[in-house]
């Protein structure tokens, strides 16, 4: 048995770290896990299923009627699809975003990752880019497919709805924006807590439990400001016919992604500071 080491054939200078190379590495890690494909597949099927069913139920219930213009009916359909896709899609995407870092800690992979990228922050930055792209594109594809599928079914039934009003597209766009904002919050939380169970619990507590607590607080006479500052409340304004909340549409978008930035900055700070 003899062992020979073959040196790298390419010029030594071409072998070094770069942002796009770390991004490529993260992409390989993400798409070479079966759980990624299962999660994205399940998300697509569930969202398209529920997203198309909701307007169909509504049409049979006569909420969409002949007196409305085709444009208004299109906006209502788009709104329903966006809300259904968001509520269901965020379950999958937030969990996936938390897992993309916590599974590195639970498996020990993080040590291999950080030995290759010892400056650490590029790992967080490239995971952020990756999760943003995947979350936005997958959710966008889901709402567009759901929208045209619904339109085709309803119009073949003589509803005569269309997406000519730009408001319909604002509705559809709200789903990928909302889901991506929440996914990035989940990613930052994952970097902070490092454990899958704690990360998923914390992310869903922020999305589902904190709003209930603050609603109680508001009902008891507390200020509505705190509630309006929550990412889930701000995100919901993105698909509202008339965005209320703080600062309207753009204010809501800023609050949602402000949370994402804060969460990622917190994660980055701890990633840099703690022992791996």
């Amino acid at each position: 048995m003899s062992v020979t080491i073959v040196p790298i054939p390419t010029a030594a200078t071409s072998v070094h770290l770069s942002f796009f190379r770390v991004l490529r590495s993260e992409q390989i890690k993400f798409f070479t896990l079966r759980s990624t494909w299962w999660t994205l597949g399940a998300m697509t099927l569930a969202c398209i299923g529920v997203g198309t069913l909701m307007p169909l139920f509504l049409a049979s219930g006569k909420s969409l009627d002949a007196s409305q213009t085709g444009e208004l009916k299109g906006v209502i359909i788009a709104n329903l699809i966006a809300m259904a896709t968001t509520q269901l899609g965020l379950l999958f995407m937030v969990a996936l975003a938390v897992l993309v870092i916590t599974n590195e800690y639970s498996s020990g992979m993080i040590r291999s990752t950080l030995v290759a990228v010892p400056r650490r922050l590029p790992v967080l930055a490239t995971k952020t880019v990756l999760i943003s792209l995947v979350s936005f594109l997958v959710t966008m594809v889901i709402v567009v497919i759901s929208a045209f599928l619904t339109l085709a079914v309803l119009n073949s039934d003589g509803l005569d709805a269309n997406f000519n009003d730009p408001a319909a597209w604002r509705m559809l766009l709200s789903a990928p924006l909302f889901v991506t904002g929440l996914a990035l919050i989940g990613l930052g939380i994952g970097f902070m807590v490092r454990s899958t169970a704690a990360g998923i619990t914390a992310a869903f507590a922020l999305i589902y439990v904190v709003p209930i607590v603050l609603q109680l607080f508001t009902a008891l006479g507390g200020s509505e400001l705190l509630l309006a500052l929550l990412p889930s409340e701000a995100g919901a304004q993105l698909s509202a016919i008339n965005p209320a909340g703080l600062g309207g549409y753009w204010g809501s978008l800023a609050i949602l992604f402000g949370w994402a930035a804060a969460s990622l900055i917190g994660g980055g700070f701890l990633l840099k500071k703690r022992d791996a």
Binding site: P9, S18, R21, S25, E26, I28, K29, T32, A116
Partner: peptide, 16 residues
């Protein structure tokens, strides 16, 4: 896949 992911960070080719 594990090795490719680590190699990718430095642009180390798949042949390596």
């Amino acid at each position: 896949a594990h090795l490719r992911a680590l190699a990718a960070t430095h642009g180390i080719p798949n042949s390596r």
